[in-house]
Structure formats: structure tokens, C-alpha cells
């Protein structure tokens, strides 16, 4: 097992503040290459806040402060001078609520290519097709690429957002409760997709749903009140949790 566990991202002593409120307390955690790591815990425990640090999305929130280091390919991405644009192209993100642009399906996927300066029409349309195929959406939309993306169903919109993210060719993908607003069938499709994608990408997923974490992830982190309570392989954490808090949460005593 250890041979294939190559550390991709390493968080060291990470603290995070919203104003004076300390939202993350001394988080230390490693993410492994081509694995799915899931974050579970009750709402407000800091799991979304933490993964938003991995692509510097918290920079957009006013009056916040970050301490500690997060290493990605030898670069400390928490450093003020770290280039957010470059990092976000390497670390893609899929949000809780599907947020397609009010553009056509095609334009949604080609957006990331165009902002990267790709002008060749052939390359763009090949890449759009490839990304939609990877996101398991191609068959449903191939005849209506010029339709407005807002016409798609919620589950389709979320897969479109995944395709949009894949087109930029990230190496890490962050999923922030990707199924929170979807029905069970769409949720199932997204989960299958995540299992497929991990062959190529390093995946981090925040979820409210413990069963989902158990189904899709290799590693699970349990957070509570801004602290990382336990981090272990998913098998272990769900069968023999070390911490009492973890056990209580998994057995539904709070949450």
C-alpha cells in the first residue's frame, strides 16, 4: 500500500480566522496522489473552509487571516505571493450548487480554454467533447451544445460544471458537497464519475453524507469545531475509529 501512497498536498499547522473567529485550528494533513480524500463532520466544522484554502478561494472573502503552510509541488500555496490564478488552473473546483454560466453548454466548457489563450477552434471543440465525455454528459447533450446551460437539469448542470473543470486539465479536483442539491439518481451518477476520475486525478471531497464518504473515498478526515479529530483510511475510520468523537458522529449521536 505504501508504494502507491505518494503525497501530493501537505498541510502544516494551518490556522484560519474569519475576523476574530478561529475557524480552523492547527490542521496537519497529507493528501495522496490519485486517491479520493473525503471530509466529513457537522455543518460549520470548517471542512469547506479548509478545502477552499487548497485553491485560494478564501482570498475572495474579506477580513480573513491564514497561518501555516500548504505545500503543492514544492510551492507554499498559502504564501501571499503564490499566484492564485496558476494554482487554480492546477487545482480545479466543483461547487455545492451547480453554477454554470448563463452561456451555451459549449461555451461553458470552452470558457477555461479561452481564458488560457487557446484560439484554435479544432483543439477547443475536441477538448470540449473529450471533457463532456469524461463527465459522462456527452450523450445527453451532444445534439444541443448551443442550448443555454441553465436549461439543463440540476444533475446535468453539475456534470457540466465537472466537464468545465476537466477542460482546464487540473491535477487536483476539489468537490465541495457536490451532491447537496441533487436527487439520489443524479447523486449516484456523480459518485460513479468520481470513482472513474480518481484514476487520473487527485480528488478531495467535502460531504455531509457519511455513506457517500464510505462509498467513494480512500481516505477520510473527520473534522469537528475547526479541528481535525481523526484522519485515516476510510476502511479504518468507519470500522475501528480511534477517537470517541468520531465514533459518536458516525453512529449518529450528533451532527
Amino acid at each position: 500500500m505504501s508504494a502507491e501512497n505518494i503525497i501530493r498536498i501537505q498541510a502544516e499547522n494551518v490556522n484560519f480566522y474569519y475576523g476574530r473567529h478561529k475557524a480552523l485550528k492547527n490542521i496537519n494533513l497529507d493528501f495522496y496522489n490519485n486517491k479520493v480524500t473525503s471530509f466529513i463532520g457537522p455543518s460549520g466544522c470548517g471542512k469547506s473552509t479548509f478545502i477552499r484554502l487548497l485553491n485560494k478561494m478564501n482570498d475572495l472573502v474579506a477580513d480573513t487571516k491564514t497561518e501555516g503552510n500548504i505545500w503543492l509541488d514544492g510551492e507554499n500555496i498559502l504564501h501571499d505571493k503564490a499566484d492564485a490564478v496558476k494554482i487554480r488552473r492546477k487545482v480545479g473546483m466543483v461547487f455545492q450548487k451547480p453554477n454554470p454560466f448563463a452561456k451555451t453548454i459549449f461555451q461553458n466548457v470552452s470558457y477555461g480554454l479561452e481564458i488560457n489563450g487557446e484560439k484554435n477552434k479544432k483543439i477547443i471543440s475536441d477538448k470540449v467533447e473529450e471533457s463532456l465525455k469524461k463527465a459522462a454528459l456527452w450523450n445527453e447533450v451532444k445534439d444541443r451544445l448551443a442550448d443555454n446551460a441553465l436549461k439543463l437539469s440540476g444533475g446535468q448542470q453539475q456534470r457540466l460544471c465537472i466537464a468545465r473543470c476537466l477542460a482546464v486539465e487540473p491535477e487536483v479536483i476539489l468537490f465541495d458537497e457536490p451532491c447537496a442539491s441533487l436527487d439520489p439518481i443524479s447523486t449516484n451518477k456523480i459518485e460513479e464519475l468520481i470513482l472513474e476520475l480518481k484514476k487520473q486525478y487527485t480528488i478531495v471531497i467535502v460531504t455531509h453524507n457519511m455513506q457517500q464518504a464510505a462509498r467513494v473515498s480512500d481516505w477520510t478526515a473527520f473534522m469537528y469545531l475547526g479541528e481535525l479529530i481523526e484522519f485515516a483510511s476510510t476502511d479504518k475510520i468507519f470500522t475501528v475509529p480511534k477517537e470517541k468523537k468520531t465514533e459518536e458522529y458516525l453512529s449518529g449521536k450528533f451532527g
Partner: peptide, 17 residues
């Protein structure tokens, strides 16, 4: 919606883009 800005920034677009 703020989510539209986040979507674009998360794809590596600059603020101006």
C-alpha cells in the same frame, strides 16, 4: 450571483477575465 464569479476564478481566470 457570487457563485458565477467563483466558478470563473476557480477555473483559473484572472479577476479582469
Amino acid at each position: 450571483p457570487q457563485s458565477v464569479r467563483e466558478a470563473s476564478l476557480a477555473l483559473g481566470a484572472t479577476k479582469l477575465q
